[in-house]
Amino acid sequence: MPVLQADKVTETLRRGGSARVDADVPARFAPGDRVVTRNINPLGHTRLPRYARGRQGVIDRDHGVFIFPDTHANTGDPKPQHCYSVLFTARELWGADASPRDKIYIDLWDDHLDPADG
């Protein structure tokens, strides 16, 4: 792509660049589904934080289909898939001393998640 010229800056910033992908990729989960995050420790980029690996949560909302950064950062492969807000209780992530009321919502993709049993 060409050099960003002064007269193109404002338009370029206003347009931005959505990571949303207009592709017909089926969702593996629906809001309300119970999920467990994978226990992965890749050497490359991942959006699944350490503090939320191997934890049980609930799909809160489906944001739609997005580029998957875990592959996009490492090889450029966008591997489009659904991205969800996943709800975790503070106690699931931090143990019995955490507030019984508080929740943490983390945006995760299909490749970070498996169905939780039961």
């Binding site: 807000s85 507030s99 945006d107 995760l108």
Partner: peptide, 14 residues
């Protein structure tokens, strides 16, 4: 204490 705190970790492009 009875207010529910919801923390949103912006791990995606939302």
């Amino acid at each position: 204490d009875d207010v529910e705190v919801r923390v949103w970790d912006s791990t995606a492009e939302l």
